[in-house]
Design a protein around this nucleic acid. Structure first.
Lengths: 366, 366
DNA sequence: ATGAAAGCGCTAACAG
DNA sequence: CTGTTAGCGCTTTCAT
């Protein structure tokens, strides 16, 4: 009979003890506290275990007893597999995995499909803590996590006053991009952003939607852009902002197309992620627009791919973010204040940004 | 008091029942079988729960009782974070995550550091089954998994007659590469392969080590290459094979360097992974060798990056592999035979392979 | 060095 | 629709 068919566990600690004529404690000790019994007895226990096909203490029963699951749960808003598509998310995962590995903890990816509002998976997760990575602030899965009596650390989320947090200063970071463009002379710009809420809206974003964005990171970036451009005497309400639900290169391309169709005069496209910027770059190329001579494009994240493309962007330490989140969780000390880790970012000026081309409008305009 | 400080669970199902003056069953039903009690009572239960801060049934206790953990364990031989570095592994993970998501199962990454032989994490994992991805056949973690009484599916592993399996026909796949090169006229080739065993050996590989390789996939590929070239009247023992422990672009580059230093006459470099091939490509470029005019280079996997590089390689459906593994596990039906899924591969002829340059040796040789 | 007792928190018959 | 009974398999004081 093949092993994959096993259905019931053949032996338990108790049956082993009975067989050996010793107490359950002794068998338990043989596994968990070798120093608590004679080497000889231990050897006998282990050998009998092998003979009876006893696979060692059941992990779940042990968890129940010890109140420790030995694993950290990760909640992502996207389809679970999304995480593996986005380089920034992969970097985060890698850092988190690193931290978990160091602590000997498993990492449980919780299947939290944003479509069905099925929170059960959160309730079902046998973990000692949760890391929540960039979900909308009104996500029911997040709420479910917060109800669980385990330590939690959120990442790229609004402050929650009850949980630890790790993130970057999104406003400051994107303000660097804005300042860079403003200095170069750009005034007529367009913005391409990731989804702002749980409902799909692939198109232009009005002021209200911008303001009510449920993704903290996106909202912070848009608000900071508004502030920066307003300070430069640009009417923010006149700046087209295009949103895309799916975070993909194709989305970036189609968003750029939509934006350029509506307002061919824009001299710069500010994208709130590198992935979107990469798509925009492709669309520009497709249209025969030279970057940066005809069009400036900027990103956000600093992923490897964008480095290769020479993208002007803000680099954020995604791996460190994951690692920091993991460490915070693992060292869930008896601190009585929620802790916050803010990582630093760095403006990377690549080859996709330059002063706007002098247009007729400029030469002959009013 | 911040939530991250909770240490003890304030209320249990029993205490809630007591408070309400109903039985535990009723409370349990309120959560698990809403149809088994009046809506009114259910409302009362849930509300009292909220009031008492009862977070719902403890997942671990429930798992113990139901004998279901709601998660699948993944065992990788590398450091847990390695998986996120290798595009092929990421693809596999994505497919597996997809399958898990579909089945509403969590995916637990088991921290199996190959350095320390600490098998405890495998014992500790509260999962309903395991997927084992490309570990050496003598890995103690694998042995530990096989001892656990849960269904298991291995991927890129030798047949085990006790567990389900998914993989490709590595021999056939790399034989296509070999035939391609042989047809082009290559006789003097070099091979760069991934690690063959648990011990580090960054250098040339002798026949014995080739034959005893503990990584099934690598061994199969080397053996198939030996067969193919032997059939073409090439003395396989004369063919240099360089091994690298770390699977990285840098490794590929250094391996290529080592090989070309030893035998500058080789006309083709066969790499057992795209990552290594990408490194070899870089090293060739660094040396001023034109690919494919001066040197042919081939890979294996068909990752996105290699497509961009125009690499001649064999494409294998990594995502499908993960998905197939997940499905096999989730549908751990009452089959009484271990099942095997063999996925198909496809030879991709890129721009990195061409006939060898006619050398003096050829023109004037014996 | 070993054992007895006492649950960890929950669910699943089954009976009312 | 609700309650009673009986564990799931294990660890952990506390004695001996």
């Amino acid at each position: 009979m093949a092993r994959s068919m096993h259905v019931r566990r053949p032996a338990t600690l108790a049956s082993l003890a009975a067989e050996l004529g010793v107490s359950r404690t002794t068998v338990s000790n043989a596994y968990n506290r070798p120093d608590q019994l004679s080497p000889e007895l231990r050897r006998r226990v282990l050998e009998t275990a092998r003979r009876l096909g006893y696979p060692g203490p059941d992990p779940v029963a042990r968890s129940l007893r010890t109140r420790k699951a030995g694993a950290v749960g990760l909640l992502l808003t996207e389809n679970l597999s999304y995480a593996f598509r986005d380089p920034a998310a992969v970097g985060f995962l890698e850092g988190l995995a690193l931290a978990c590995e160091d602590a000997g903890q498993g990492l449980l990816l919780v299947p939290a499909n944003p479509e069905r509002e099925d929170v059960a998976a959160v309730h079902r997760a046998g973990v000692d803590g949760f890391v929540v990575y960039s979900v909308p602030d009104d996500d029911p899965h997040l709420a479910a996590v917060l109800e669980r009596p385990v330590p939690t650390v959120v990442c790229d989320q609004p402050e929650l006053d009850t949980v630890d947090r790790v993130g970057i200063d999104d406003r400051a970071a994107i303000t660097q991009i804005a300042s860079h463009l403003i200095e170069l002379g750009h005034r007529r710009v367009g913005v391409i952003c990731m989804r702002l809420a749980r409902d799909r809206n692939d198109g232009f974003v009005n002021a209200e939607r911008q303001h009510n964005a449920h993704f903290h990171v996106q909202r912070a970036r848009l608000e900071a852009l508004a502030t920066a451009f307003t300070s430069a005497n640009v009417d923010w309400t006149s700046i087209p902002v295009v949103e895309r639900f799916d975070h993909s290169i194709a989305s970036g391309a189609s968003a750029a197309a939509q934006l350029l169709d509506r307002d061919p005069q824009v001299t710069a496209l500010i994208c709130t992620s590198d992935i979107l910027a990469l798509g925009a770059l492709g669309e520009a190329r497709r249209r025969g627009l030279r970057v940066p001579q005809d069009l400036t494009i900027t990103g956000f994240d600093g992923i490897t791919e964008s480095e290769r493309a020479g993208l002007t962007t803000v680099r954020q330490p995604v791996l460190e973010k994951g690692r920091a989140a993991g460490k915070l969780l693992v060292n869930a000390a008896d601190h009585h204040q929620p802790r916050t880790v803010t990582l630093s970012t760095e403006l990377v000026i690549g080859t996709t940004s330059a002063p706007p081309r002098i247009t007729e409008e400029r030469w002959f305009g009013p």
